[in-house]
């Protein structure tokens, strides 16, 4: 396959970026999208040109490090798929593909397609945990948890923190990310003690980071590589109002 690529190049956070044309001439349908970019980069490097910077690590869809906007869609056209698991058989010979970084005020561009997502870490730091020190935990079977509850918590806990939900949202809201963690912990008995304090602290942090609000568009759910449903956001909103009612601090 031969493809035309339009890739966002930007030297650093303070400089202007632009789309640059590249040709990818020897693309096999079995390649993953990032392997296709590896091949383009290999060509650039051999000629002494700066490689296109993009993040990736596990390349099996679980670490959440990769993230590109492909033809306007975070992680590309396949549902429930990270861009590292998107394969070139999804495209046709002669296609033009536009590749851009996540765009959100809270995710400044570091270089080319790499953005700074440390804001998501700071949201977790604000309260996305159960406060237990190592050492004094009771037996794992001391508190039975209904299978359905545990499975629902796991559905939310599956979030990989890639930030696609933010990139897809016209408000650049981190609600889906945040609500996944809040749901996971508020569903389980272990998360009850800090339930209200957690939701308030995390939402306040998200506001401080410059993420927007939710206007129920559902774009986040559509692009989430782990298909985390927006019912999590509804749950978070309920938790939030309940927390304000009981004074969650």
């Amino acid at each position: 396959m031969r493809l035309k690529l339009k890739i966002w190049r930007q030297a650093g956070p303070g400089t202007a970026g632009r789309l640059v044309d590249y040709a990818a001439d020897h693309v096999s349908p079995d390649m993953s999208f990032l392997e296709m970019l590896d091949v383009v980069n290999e060509g650039l490097v051999k000629q002494g040109h700066d490689a296109i910077a993009f993040d990736s690590d596990c390349r099996e869809g679980i670490c959440g490090m990769c993230g590109l906007v492909v033809n306007g869609i975070p992680h590309g056209p396949d549902r429930g798929t990270t861009v590292c698991q998107l394969h070139m058989r999804r495209f046709r010979d002669g296609d033009t593909i536009v590749i851009e970084p996540w765009r959100a005020r809270a995710f400044p561009v570091v270089k080319d397609l790499v953005v700074d997502r440390s804001a998501l870490d700071r949201i977790i730091t604000a309260g996305g945990y159960v406060s237990v020190n190592c050492g004094g935990a009771p037996d794992g079977n001391a508190i039975p948890i209904a299978k359905e509850v545990s499975e629902t918590a796991m559905d939310s806990a599956a979030c990989i923190g890639c930030g696609a939900c933010v990139a897809a949202c016209k408000n650049a809201s981190a609600h889906l990310f945040m609500s996944a963690k809040i749901s996971h912990l508020s569903l389980l008995p272990q998360g009850q003690i800090e339930r209200y304090r957690r939701v308030v602290a995390m939402i306040e942090q998200a506001d401080a980071e410059g993420f927007g609000s939710c206007s129920n568009e559902g774009e986040c759910e559509a692009v989430c590589p782990k298909e985390i449903p927006i019912s999590n956001i509804a749950r978070m909103t309920r938790e939030y109002f309940r927390a304000l009612w009981v004074g969650g601090r």
């Binding site: 794992g140 079977n141 508190i143 039975p144 209904a146 299978k147």
Partner: peptide, 22 residues
């Protein structure tokens, strides 16, 4: 054995059977 207890306390959603045990 302590690891499992610690992780359960953190809220790790391990698989459970219908009686609610691990």
């Amino acid at each position: 054995v302590n690891i499992i207890d610690q992780c359960v306390a953190q809220g790790v959603p391990f698989a459970r059977d219908y009686g609610g045990l691990l």
